[in-house]
């Protein structure tokens, strides 16, 4: 009983520590984007840095994975406070809200259909080619 509780506590402790490290990386990223005056926001710099650190085996996956996976799983929660900002545009939304929503919803649907259809078409043609080359190999070996 005591062992399970203590292992849970240490698990949470590590997770918080990992989240703090990721936070540090995003702060470093923000600093980089300030210094370089690049139009790329800090969090994207942080993402690139973490990816390179993982790729070159400077940071092990286990060092960041439990905290990182938790952050990704609960990402929707972090969007909530800024979404409530719709409230400050109540006036605009009351007058032109319907036009704005129709514009955005239609455009989003178009984007999703185009992007999905193109990716799916390329994927399918690749799949077909794979099957064909497998057949060709089998025929060659049976001859």
């Amino acid at each position: 009983m005591f062992a399970t509780i203590s292992s849970k506590v240490s698990c949470i402790f590590w997770m918080i520590l990992q989240v703090a490290c990721l936070f540090g990386l995003s702060e470093i990223g923000t600093w980089i984007s300030k210094v370089l005056h690049a139009p790329i926001p800090g969090s994207i710099w942080g993402l690139i840095i973490l990816f390179l650190l993982l790729k070159f085996k400077i940071v092990k996956l286990e060092w960041v994975s439990s905290g990182g996976d938790w952050l990704i799983r609960e990402m929707l929660l972090f969007f909530v406070p800024s979404s409530v900002g719709i409230l400050s545009y109540g006036h605009l939304m009351l007058h032109q809200g319907i036009q704005i929503v129709v514009t955005i919803v239609t455009s989003t649907a178009l984007v999703m259909v185009f992007t999905g259809a193109i990716a799916e078409t390329i994927w399918k043609s690749r799949q077909r080619r794979k099957v064909k080359s497998r057949y060709a190999k089998e025929e060659a070996s049976s001859c």
């Binding site: 969090s43 960041v64 990182g68 952050l71 990704i72 800024s82």
Partner: peptide, 15 residues
């Protein structure tokens, strides 16, 4: 909570 969006974006490097 809104500030956590930055480390969450950084964490996307993991997947």
């Amino acid at each position: 909570l809104a500030d956590m969006l930055n480390p969450a974006t950084v964490a996307l490097a993991i997947p």
